[in-house]
Design a binder for these strands. Structure first.
Lengths: 224, 224
DNA sequence: CCAAATATAATAGTATTACTATCATATAGT
DNA sequence: ACTATATGATAGTAATACTATTATATTTGG
């Protein structure tokens, strides 16, 4: 997988950034360090000023890449979902059996994140933690409808649709394929959050517990 | 139901507030108007200064009830979950059949919110909208572990546990009762959010769609 | 290789937020 | 009427989230 991915670039809506952070060294440092910092101090405490100090650059220079930190969060989240989508498509493409295919898809989107050496400036493990802790904040806003119209959530929506389509392929009569798909994606993040902070509210403790939980949930629910 | 509830007070952890807002007229106006305002402008734009203007009071007076707006959000959320818990216990108490009981419980926590005249200063319909749009922000913070230790989320946790226990009563061998219970509560809020902002990601369009979705999900998954 | 374009850095300034502190006034209970 | 307690008014502070301007590097095209 590594070799192939080396030439892949995750494609992100151009309106999310002012200048493409992939286009320069400073841009990549902004992404790289913002992942470390947001993970470390949380999105609320994170500021462009602090990021500037950390990367030895200036606040005003960061504003040339992103309008504000909310847009940066949208960028990081889009990158994460784009990366997951790529893995999902790659891993399920050759599978003919619809049930095997969906099973694999659920495994991909619910399993514990592992480092991907193809993107050296991005720490996928920490980025996954950011998505678990901060993604909701990117859409639980008053601007969500306008931003949705701008296409800022398109990759995430496409991912939900892909899994929804796989569910339909197994049981075209099941009444809630989209709800079930969105429940898997959002619910998986939530179970990981609970594991770390409210362990009594989840049974997903380690390894592939989360995958097992959702695979069982989905296949019991949709039957053939 | 109305008569009985008139003497009920939702019991909220005393450390969430500085002074009990139920203990005075100003306190109740703070709660009443904050629900309208947070719903109207979103939690980010909401400030104590603006609230003061709206209720014809002073910023500094509001600080005598809540340390900050985060604590006020914790209060509103706790009140909401306490209110839901009361309805759940009340509605399921007499039901002997475990399946009927769980079915009713899921209906209560997933159905569309209706006004409850027992609490005249609280608009439950708007409060439900606030919980849908803002609740995640109350725990997706760096302080979550400390605040959990303080007991700020205890009502919500008790609700999850209640439903988890009902699942266990039906099938003691099912491996993920807590995960399933937390998926219902959190997933229900999410489906309502999707309905309003990402309709293509949900099949829950109106009336009792959400209840039907989750009842079907749960009973298919746990079987007998 | 020089000029011009472009990228980055430095500095300053602004409105708003999220408070804290102090003092004044109103009201309520004994 | 006295005194506690609740509320209101005002002022002040550090930090945030920017915008604007100017200066200095760095790149690149002729």
């Amino acid at each position: 997988m590594d070799r192939l991915l080396q030439s892949v670039k995750i494609n992100i809506n151009e309106n999310i950034y002012v200048k493409d952070p992939e286009s320069s060294d400073l841009g990549k440092r902004i992404i790289q360090e913002s992942i470390l910092m947001v993970n470390e101090m949380g999105f609320e405490s994170f500021t462009f000023k602090k990021l500037g100090v950390k990367i030895g650059s200036n606040e005003s220079s960061i504003y040339r890449y992103f309008e504000n930190k909310h847009k940066l969060l949208l960028y990081l989240a889009s990158w994460y979902w784009g990366w997951l989508e790529y893995q999902l498509v790659f891993a399920t493409n050759g599978i003919g059996n619809p049930k095997e295919k969906l099973k694999k898809a659920i495994e991909i989107v619910t399993k514990v994140t592992e480092e991907d050496s193809s993107f050296s400036h991005i720490n996928e493990v920490l980025l996954n933690k950011i998505v678990i802790n901060e993604y909701s904040k990117s859409y639980l806003t008053k601007e969500v409808d306008a931003e949705n119209k701008e296409g800022y959530f398109i990759i995430y929506k496409r991912l939900v649709t892909r899994i929804s389509d796989m569910i339909k392929a197994i049981n075209p009569d099941y009444k809630h394929p989209s709800s079930l798909s969105s429940t898997i994606l959002e619910g998986s993040l939530h179970q990981y959050f609970l594991k770390d902070h409210f362990p009594s509210l989840t049974d997903c403790k380690e390894g592939n517990d989360t995958s097992t939980y959702f695979q069982n949930l989905v296949f019991s629910t949709i039957k053939p």
